[in-house]
Design a protein around this nucleic acid. Sequence first.
RNA 1: GCCUUAGUGGCUCAGCCGGUAGAGCGAUACCUUGGUAAGGUAUAGGCCGGGGGUUCGAAUCCCCCCUAAGGCUCCA
Length: 610
Amino acid sequence: MRILLIHSDHLKYQTKSKTRIAEKISEEEKAGEFINALVVFTAVEKEDEAKPEEIAENAVKEIIDVFRNVKAENIVIYPYAHLSSSLSSPKSAKTILTNIESKLAKMDLPVSRVPFGWYKSFEVSCKGHPLSELSRSITPLSLPKEEIEEKGEKSQFFILYNGECTDPEQFDDFNQDMKKLMDYELGRGESSGEEPPHVKLMREKKLADYEPSADVGHLRWYPKGRLIRDLLSDYVYTLVTDHGAMPVETPIMYDLADDAIRVHAEKFGERQYRMGGGKKDLMLRYACCFGAFRILSDSFLTWKNLPVGIYELSTYSFRLEKKGEVVGLKRLRGFTMPDLHTVCVDLAQSMEEFQKQIEMCKKTGEDLKVNYEVIIRTTAEFMQENKDWINHAAEKIGKPVLLEILPERKHYWVCKMDFAAIDYLGRPIENPTIQMDVESGERFGITYIDSEEHDNHPIILHCSPTGSIERVICSLLEKSALDMKEKAPMLPLWLAPTQVRIIPITERHLEHAAKLARELRNAHIRVDVDERPETVGKKIRSAGGEWVPFVIVIGDRELEGAELTINVRETGQKVSMGLQELIDIIRLETKGMPYRPLPLPMNISRRVNF
RNA sequence: GCCUUAGUGGCUCAGCCGGUAGAGCGAUACCUUGGUAAGGUAUAGGCCGGGGGUUCGAAUCCCCCCUAAGGCUCCA
């Protein structure tokens, strides 16, 4: 918001004609005169819409401050659009201006407001002393931090284990990761000041890199990284469709003129990308909720349909995170999140579905070989009424779970469960999540017909069974950095860009190498051939650097016999076996996991060095 | 966003109390036809992040900006 403050001897105005957005006024409001008045010319801006309350409060503070300083007798709020080129909607402007007026009136200050949306003539005579002309930009940020945080009491934390609810201070049967998670949640994590290793790894392994020509927190993905993303996408797709969800795809931007969209968007405050462009004020989605809810509210749902899940992978979701918070794959401004929304008839059904989704989230940890620690967050009220259910949820995890109890409901959910991997530096990477949403059904006008033919608003579960794709890759890389202390780091076999590398010793072994490669490729194994004229030692080393799980050297011996010598990265051993045996081993280990072919030239010498 | 630190060939870094721009890896070429984690030789490659200032002279000193990392805070 921009304001221009003029300390005037007098202000006179007269309304002339209405504009399209004029407010209704009484006869006596059509003209006015004020003596010794502080005139506040005010333009409400687009960005103010996110935090109207804070803006009004800050404006009031600023006005009172100047008012007392100049010792005026009146305050006049004067809507004056010409102070800004990025105006808010007239509706928000009226709301904010009225709000400022009533706040000042409540403090018994002599305040008046000139009508909004009229063409007016006016006369103002400025006193001309040093403080008589001031301009200010009002932002929600100028509100001191402590005052924002004052609202709401603090959460309480407990450890849930074996049906017991214990004070974290009293509990000592922790695994290391849970201890780290708890320290972090309770705000007593210590930091070593190191860089998270995944950032170096994602670049070194040519998976992804920063893109300086985009905004902060948007990445470029190289073929190997893109392959891993695609495999993970395939994985989640199969997982959720196996659970009965229906995939959809929805737009990435939404019109803020829709009230439901705007209110849901405001949950994110300033962390949104806004777009102008034409007459519409648009936001970029920060999750798939918007599109999913719009589909659901336009659908005809009956109790017989429910529970029903719709699924979308958000390539991309956008969140305008603070610059200093954006890091590698852990925190981005553009990210890809699997997002499942499950519509349930009531709390009871959503609680039942919730338990199934816990199983699903747990399974992703097993399939990805990532250890999750779990936090259940709930409102005090929900906890009170559903103790057994929460205990049951915690028991499913099979190890101690952190429980956060919030005194009041601050968000759209009453209960959520977060699964976090612990990174190399001992900090959580929040991955899968399940949330029980009691608000959006009503807000988005989503209804279903129950068996008595009444319309009802459903409870909606939000679930991301893996968390964002980027964070999954982040967890995998962080884990491999931890592994590095003890053994050769690697990705799960089904995600390894190259699963088998063949190294021919000399030119005369090339043909045989190519033949083996063809056979492996036909067996749906990602295989490549390092036919560069380098020494065997060097090629072995370079395969090691790429974390290739199986390496086969082809020389005269292999030309003669059927047995191959295979370097197995996992064990660090050289094993002798036939080709079919290798194929069987790989098939067994990647069973049930998605496959995509190698997205790179099979010959190493033809590869681009990104 | 704020505070701290950093930015030098594609990558990792040295040079930084001012005086001709350095190394290793990688790349390219040639030699080597080599059996399990770097074979040899040569060559190319730089607006020293950008802009301004001080100076006879700036990668080096000063100011502003950009980008990155760490911390604060919030999240998937």
